[in-house]
Simulated scan of single mutants.
Amino acid sequence: MPEVEDGMCFACGEKNPISLRLKFEEIDENKVRAEFIPGENHQGYNGIIHGGLTATLLDEAMAHVIGFKGIKAFTAELNIRYRTAIEIGETLEIIGEYKRSKKSSIASIHYAQAEIFDQKGNLKAKAEAKFIEA
């Protein structure tokens, strides 16, 4: 499924000079994957990635897996579990997974989850979210 062109997206935009340049690929029908290496300009505490940026990585993975399914939706609720600090310079694997959907009287709601792992396969952070179809 081709993605919607949004060159100025903070997380994945090619035209945005401060973009994270995330490139997600489908790894099965309901999963996407990307890699990211945080640099010094992504830190909160010295040597540790800013927690808000971790949230961005997780949210973007879930948005992409929903987008790859051809659904246009926005984040309505985001719950994050930070497991351990993410160090600057470590290669991260970000996985987004589509879980399910349900229709309410107002809109269709889509559920997804995302996880961030280090190169050794250690879980660094995990999120679950609800997306409302636009």
Rank of each mutant, 00 (worst) to 15 (best):
P2F: 00
P2M: 00
E3V: 08
E3Q: 06
V4Y: 08
V4F: 05
E5L: 08
D6N: 10
D6I: 14
D6V: 13
D6W: 09
G7K: 03
M8V: 10
M8Q: 04
C9W: 01
F10L: 07
A11M: 01
C12W: 00
G13F: 00
E14V: 05
K15D: 09
P17D: 02
P17I: 00
I18T: 07
L20E: 02
L20K: 07
L20D: 07
R21K: 14
K23L: 02
K23C: 07
I27D: 01
D28Q: 09
D28A: 05
A34N: 01
P38L: 04
E40I: 13
E40Q: 07
N41K: 14
N41M: 10
Q43N: 07
Y45G: 08
N46C: 06
N46E: 15
G47R: 01
I48F: 14
H50D: 14
G51D: 12
G52F: 02
L53T: 13
A55F: 03
T56M: 12
L57W: 02
L57T: 02
D59N: 12
E60Y: 02
E60S: 07
A63P: 05
H64V: 00
H64W: 07
V65S: 00
F68N: 07
F68P: 08
G70C: 11
I71W: 11
A73G: 12
F74T: 08
F74A: 15
T75A: 14
A76V: 00
A76G: 12
Y82P: 00
Y82T: 03
T84E: 05
A85I: 02
I86N: 09
E87G: 09
T91C: 01
T91G: 02
T91S: 04
E93I: 13
I95S: 05
I95K: 11
E97Y: 07
E97P: 05
Y98K: 12
Y98G: 04
K99T: 13
S101I: 01
K103V: 15
K103Y: 13
K103L: 15
S104H: 10
S105I: 11
I106P: 10
I106D: 15
A107M: 11
A107L: 12
A112L: 11
A114S: 14
A114P: 01
E115Q: 15
I116G: 06
F117W: 06
F117G: 05
Q119L: 14
Q119N: 11
G121P: 12
G121Y: 09
L123I: 11
A125I: 10
K126C: 02
E128W: 06
E128L: 09
A129K: 01
A129Y: 02
K130S: 13
K130F: 04
I132N: 04
E133L: 01
E133W: 06
E133G: 03
